[in-house]
Computed example of a mutant assay.
Amino acid sequence: MAGYFSIFLVLLTLASGLIWLIDHLVYAPKRKQLIALAEGASGKPLDEELKEEIAPVPVLTEHAKSIFPMIAIITLFRSFLFEPFQIPSGSMMPTLLVGDFILVQKYSYGIKDPVWRSELVATGKPERGDIAVFKFPPKPDLDFIKRVIGLPGDTIVYRNKQLYIKPHCEQGQAEQGSLLCGEYNKIALDIINKDEFMQGSQQLVRLEEDLDGLKHDILINPRLPEFKSKYYQQQGTKIDEWVVPEGHYFMMGDNRDNSEDGRAWGFVPEPNLVGKAVFIWMSFEFENTADDFLPSWVPTSVRFERLGNIQ
């Protein structure tokens, strides 16, 4: 839906701009000529009301001239700078919650045209630990949001709720950041609490994960077995191991046992990247139930404490 809206904005901008331009070059001079002839015949300047009667501006032209500047600014801002995005599910808990409204920095991973999404200017690549919005590979009209875990050439293992990363390194390189080259680095985990979040009737464990120096919180359900039968099986690797192809990235949700991510469908091609999630600008609580007067989509409170930069 976000892709269709982008196309709609571009088409609306082009249409209103074209109408304004044609009127400015062709029809506005003709209206001025008619008014000049009328003023010459009467021998005195005409008031605005009479000018409008003699040479009226078409309604479509008036609307196009009024909306074009605003629509053009919105299109440029949304296409090349920042795009608003609403968190639709709990797959990125506890980092992002349902009801969070975020800004996605569009130029983080290259400036792209808003229609065909071809790269116009290269500005950067995803880094391990980024929270990225991307076009869902199996269904590119959907936008997904996950954390970047694996970079091109990395080997990722997720086994017994534990993440391991063997980074891709250049010949002779001993370390990549805090990760040792040639080894499966066990990503450090520290328990924060066990009673803050629930999945149904089961308590989730909140842990701090140190992903190559970037510390962030994740959730796991220790009682829920890993869904290995649904894992994406890459040829030549074990069922819980993935080697990231060149030009692709491996993504995972922070809510590890409640996230449809790269473990289930594989890798994100670089052209699918939309941008980096950088800021929570609004966060609503939705607590209305079926028994309440107001529908469930009406916010019940604002979580002001959540506003700010995304870690």
Results as ranks from 00 to 15, higher is better:
T237G: 15
T237P: 13
T237E: 05
K238P: 07
I239Y: 04
I239H: 04
D240M: 01
D240L: 00
E241Y: 08
V244I: 03
V244M: 02
E246A: 13
E246N: 08
G247L: 14
G247E: 08
G247C: 13
G247Y: 13
Y249K: 14
Y249Q: 05
F250R: 06
M251N: 07
M252S: 06
D254T: 06
D254M: 09
D254K: 08
N255K: 01
R256L: 02
R256G: 05
D257F: 14
D257L: 15
N258C: 13
S259A: 12
S259W: 05
E260Y: 07
E260I: 06
D261G: 14
G262V: 01
G262A: 05
G262E: 11
G262S: 10
W265G: 06
G266D: 00
G266M: 02
F267E: 12
F267Q: 11
V268D: 10
V268G: 12
E270P: 01
P271I: 14
P271S: 07
V274G: 05
V274M: 11
V274H: 14
V274S: 11
G275C: 09
A277Q: 14
A277I: 06
V278A: 10
F279P: 06
W281E: 00
S283E: 12
S283V: 12
F284V: 01
E285M: 10
T289Q: 07
T289V: 06
A290C: 04
A290Q: 03
A290F: 09
D291I: 04
D291W: 06
D292C: 02
D292P: 03
L294M: 00
L294H: 01
L294K: 02
S296F: 10
P299L: 03
P299I: 00
P299Y: 03
T300P: 13
S301A: 06
V302S: 08
V302M: 08
V302C: 09
V302T: 04
V302R: 14
R303S: 12
R303G: 14
R303V: 15
R303Q: 09
F304I: 06
E305P: 01
E305I: 11
L307G: 11
L307I: 03
L307E: 07
G308Q: 07
G308A: 08
G308F: 12
N309Y: 09
N309E: 15
N309C: 09
I310G: 14
I310D: 11
Q311L: 07
